[in-house]
Design a protein around this nucleic acid. Sequence first.
DNA 1: CCCATCCTCCAAAACGTTTTGGGAGTCAAT
DNA 2: ATTGACTCCCAAAACGTTTTGGAGGATGGG
Lengths: 336, 336
Amino acid sequence: MANLKQLAHSLGLSITTVSRALDGYSDVSAATRERVREAAEAAGYRPNASARRLRKQRAELVAVTLPSDPGHVGPPHFLDMLSGCAEHLAAAGLNLVIAPVPRGVSELEICQRFVDGRRVDAMLLVRTKRQDERVEYLQSRGIPFVTNGRTESLIPHPFIDGDGFAGFRAATLRFHAAGHRRIGHIAGPQEYYFAHVRRRGWQAAMEECGLATDLCAEGAPLEQGGYLAALELLRQPSRPTALVCATDEMAIGALRALREVDGGSQISIVGHDDLSMGAFTSPPLSTMRMTGENLGATFASLLLRAIAGEPAEDLQELHAIEFVDRDSHRRPPVAA
Amino acid sequence: MANLKQLAHSLGLSITTVSRALDGYSDVSAATRERVREAAEAAGYRPNASARRLRKQRAELVAVTLPSDPGHVGPPHFLDMLSGCAEHLAAAGLNLVIAPVPRGVSELEICQRFVDGRRVDAMLLVRTKRQDERVEYLQSRGIPFVTNGRTESLIPHPFIDGDGFAGFRAATLRFHAAGHRRIGHIAGPQEYYFAHVRRRGWQAAMEECGLATDLCAEGAPLEQGGYLAALELLRQPSRPTALVCATDEMAIGALRALREVDGGSQISIVGHDDLSMGAFTSPPLSTMRMTGENLGATFASLLLRAIAGEPAEDLQELHAIEFVDRDSHRRPPVAA
DNA sequence: CCCATCCTCCAAAACGTTTTGGGAGTCAAT
DNA sequence: ATTGACTCCCAAAACGTTTTGGAGGATGGG
């Protein structure tokens, strides 16, 4: 209800003084400042966001692109990340707005809509692809952004990512050290960077060990995709004795395939993401997770620093992957 | 880059005419309109959102409160709902913004921050409580809103909800008809309306059948909560032979408890939410789901109608619950 | 007593859009 | 020639804030 004009009038002060008092400028006396603050509090005054945004030429918003294709946005705990990110952005006066990407519309177009209408100060990109047109566009427009996951862009840009290559290589080598020789990989869609790099980690380990890399099947990054991919690998003349899965959801789908084929007790399996659900599957799912606390806060921090103009090179975080030891990776190395 | 003034200048027209041409008013000639449109297209012109919002006195934003407490926001597919809702709001020129609720801050305060700063035109409330202070506040301020889940508010307000009472009553009666007599309930936190009403559905069925309602344990609406609650019920001198769980996540936690205690083959179980994961658990999880297509679109539609001023009574959707028949509810009615 | 300095405060401009309330010109009917 | 209706266009106001560039008065040093 209350705007600055009314508040100023009721106090017998000018709009300027009230505004500056509330913003804590030193050119208004302590007494006046206090008086203004009390009146503002009493009136429940909050500055009109649109007006401030217009005047300050800042949208006070950060957009995150969300594909409406169910399941293609990220693991379930992605929502916690978003919420954490929004919380830390809010502490800096920024709000997180969802930029939905309807089926049939390119993510690029959505980016343009938000950027060209000056609706956002920065963007958060998730599920990056190896060649990501959003990255190129934002770079060309000079809009600050941070990606969740790297890209193959030649120009460096801010990102947070897990070292999927190292993580999947290590997991594969761990199986090899346990005596496994036929180690399969259940891969996600290869246009996504995360899926590609995880596959390459597995591949590198296999080649280092002098093993063939034919035991690889690709699927959608969901339970069903993992299930179908696992069935495909289990149909091979010589079955894998261990499976390295691109995501926990795929691994959980694969677990069902294993149960259907051999009762689930013969083949080792490991996923990635550390879903809480993984502790409750049968068997409990060994997995990997990106190290680092409070991912959302880190994204928020990088976004703020990007907006502040820090160079991209200083805003790249590659986190180590740690192994989460449950039970599903402990099957004997030789299948029945 | 381009604003209306520049565009108008380059066309030799007034700002007014350009603005009205782009908005399709009839008092600008078809020829001019076309000329303006082409120039706007070529210049990549998009109206400045903040300026329009200020002038039109509409924020063009809808906020959804998201607790940052992980897991307390809703089931995993909640994100799909949000995305769908955002998509349909966007088609009407509204964007969905996240109103994060940090630990230690009341949801009410967050609502006030958004409403009083005129940052939003409407709000979407999720995880409603039986007594929900947000509802009272928004009603008192006359801000349009829709809740995901009912409340016990005396004044009617727009909502979308599943008929949890009927659903859980029916599920319990189904177990009874199958011969079960010791039917337990794993309940969610009772301050949430959804958890309370589901429990009451189970309770009503038990009483109708003349059965005791002592086999009830409460936990957090997550796997761990369901796991602990199930262990509690399994410690009873006379175990339940069937479990009706408030959510699929709790049911999946309970499944693990069952496996630990009796191998998982003796006790029937049913959840609610129809998580995709449920098709891949061992055994596959029978569950319930709210009927209705595209929940997000429905929320968007209700929000738009609430903003348009339709009365709350016309904006209440109570959806039937349907049973999803997998396998976990088919255990014999008598425990070992 | 004068000048400089500081402390408070304020009028006005600006942000970019939409909307109000006409104004000029054309055309047809009077 | 005048009137009225109609078409096409525009100047100016308004939305509510922040910021610029002082103004006016008090204070203190010379």
